[in-house]
Design a protein around this nucleic acid. Structure first.
Lengths: 228, 228, 228, 228
DNA sequence: GATGAATGAGGCTTCATTCAT
DNA sequence: TATGAATGAAGCCTCATTCAT
């Protein structure tokens, strides 16, 4: 028990220190990019010596990759968790948009890093990171496809190619995030959720008999004004 | 006159050589990224000495920036040109999607470079590039907004916030391109145009009276085959 | 008495552990050389922590030096011991060759280390090692000289400069060892003892009347002064 | 012709500069060993910037390897050249010793480097160097064997195993060089040529009638077969 | 005594840019 | 104008050694 306790404390401390490094690293990488960030900067910011960083990570690329993947997974987990807590398909789709937007607003640093991330990689190590990121993303989109498939089965959604539907939804979400982070307009991203949903669900085309659908959306719009 | 002719020839040659350099540069930058590409490589590929590159460009960042901006402008010009040739709003929206997709398929190298482009800013020079790219992009989206505004005025599109509409359209297009270049599925990107338009115009939600809208889309499909 | 016993046990344990470290160290140093061997590797191989190594040795160079010198002394002791057990000069010379060869065959690891040892001096500590090794070697050769001097006195050997004789004997022995360890021919080194002795004792020249050969050499000496 | 001339001058200058670097490098490597020598030191000594060294050599190991191999080959060439100019076998053997000794005396720096060379290698690059050095050495010894074989054919040398003879000769020579460079005695190495030849040719054993000596050895040979 | 995490100095190498020819 | 050799700053990483626990 004594030994075990010691070991556990050690492991915990190790994880704690590691996390501290990663936290500082995100900020710096986000601000200056992978290449312009130096190990010395990360070391200084996290209160360690350069050498110590190598106790936690095999090298700069490893540190970067680990950090990105860890955050990426946390992001998708958080989003999918929030979505899963919704009972209806409608609610889930809405939750998807909301949690995506919320994540960006709450993790601007990391998101900026993602946007600025040079996915044109090279050095084996980073190539692997790229693949891992794409994999994780693919899995997320496939999970969304499953969601949409359910929606179709429940006749909440039209019977379209799920891939196309998912791409559209993901595209609108991703681009909204990009546009928001890219434009220094003070407005909240979450404030656009209803518009996003409206367009995704009802489309842009005018039609004579739309009233009903429109109403339902507007209703929701009026109840859930803003979120973050 | 003799002098003028000589001068003109010189200017022409200068432009010609410069273009040759840029052409080789895209390929290399696309393949290896900004940082891993060396001036020596560009020099060798374009048949010049390293020193000569500095007659045409102020430095590596300048060369890269100029190249990117030139291609970006050409891209938007080509796309907007194709769209402008369409008489109807319907046709123009369709042409927008088509020409965006066509551009990617015909300029994979450059597009890959764009996707892999580390938009994380850093060195003053590249920060300016980033801003220029964003500006150009913004202008394009605003132009799309104008287009959509016309559509609303003509009651082809619903009276939604044009920003939201434009973001949705741009998002679906952009993400489709990203998904396509990212996935090694052999299918043509242009083959998905109808699906993209369908989702964008009619949305994903199921509704009672759908027959009519579908027809209108299919009609349009038959009139504006291909673009770029 | 109790205290003394404890102390003795401690000293014994200390020596035991120290020896264990040295034993592991030879192998690693032999395999990877001084510079590429890390304290961590030695620690791991000998089952101690890096810190513990510093209870036994002042540092890496000290560990290396001590290890080398210990083995070197053991080597010469073993060789000289074997030689001393011989009654005749003839036997002693023969035993010298045999025990030299035997030592290499039985301690290939260490011998490989010796051959690969960077005797190019550098850091004070290793400079001292170099000097110690040379001293030990010199003492060995001087001891051989004494042996040969006895041989001359007993008229078993020609009355030549003992230095030259010793150098020749040592040279033939050393080079044979080097050639053997360097060439992956499976043959035993000990199998060449007779040949070595034959050449050393009787020389390579053919001819009954040794006097003449000597003359011819002297003659030549006068004609071919210098070469490089 | 103009172009050719320019090119030739360039190549010449390149070679000249390269040689200058190598010359400085030998000295430093000889004094401090491979590991303790820094590129900065070589750069400074040869009047170049560190970066410039990389125009001439791929890296530190390359610089070292190239330098060693170049000198090693020159050494053997010079020695074999001097030997070849002798008409008789006697003369050639004598010239071999002389030129070996002369080379050391005239290239103490390089020889010191050779002696201190850590032949326990590692990093692929240096492992190759080791192999090349051994190859070159082997070729030299084989060439000596041929020489000795001729000697046997001409009945200048006894009909012994040429390998043993060559090893003995090479051993005596090498060890003499080692002993000389290792001992700070002011005496010339070349002064010992006759002694070396005397021992090698006539051996150390006393006895007018060589036949007898032979018998005694052979006798021993038959009694003490093998040892370890 | 034993441990092993932390330290931090120092070296090899790259490559954009300049400038003498 | 064209060349390309020379520059030199800057960064990643290793590892012997220390010292708090």
């Amino acid at each position: 028990m004594n030994t075990t306790g010691k070991l556990q404390r050690k492991v915990k401390e190790f994880q704690f220190r590691r996390a501290e490094i990663l936290d500082q690293a995100v900020k710096i990488f986000a601000a200056k990019g992978f290449h312009k960030t130096t190990m010395a900067q990360i070391a200084k910011a996290s209160g360690f010596s350069t050498g110590s960083l190598y106790h936690f990570f095999r090298g700069k690329e490893d540190l970067y990759s680990v950090m990105v993947m860890e955050k990426v997974r946390m992001m998708y987990d958080e989003i999918m968790g929030a979505v899963s807590r919704e009972p209806s398909i409608d609610g889930m789709i809405r939750a998807l948009v909301i949690s995506h937007f919320a994540y960006v607003e709450h993790h601007i640093d990391f998101y900026r890093l993602l946007v600025g991330h040079e996915s044109g990689l090279r050095s084996e190590g980073l190539k692997k990171l790229r693949d891992n990121m794409l994999d994780e993303h693919r899995k997320h989109v496939e999970w969304i496809e499953d969601l949409l498939r359910d929606g179709i089965r429940q006749e909440v959604l039209r019977d379209l190619d799920t891939k196309s539907l998912a791409n559209a939804l993901m595209g609108i979400i991703a681009y909204s995030k990009f546009a928001w982070i890219t434009n220094p307009s003070g407005a909240s991203l979450l404030g656009t959720v209803d518009d996003v949903l409206d367009v995704f669900l009802r489309g842009g085309a005018a039609g004579q008999e739309v009233g009903q659908a429109e109403t339902s959306v507007r209703d929701r719009k009026n109840t859930t004004q803003e979120a973050g």
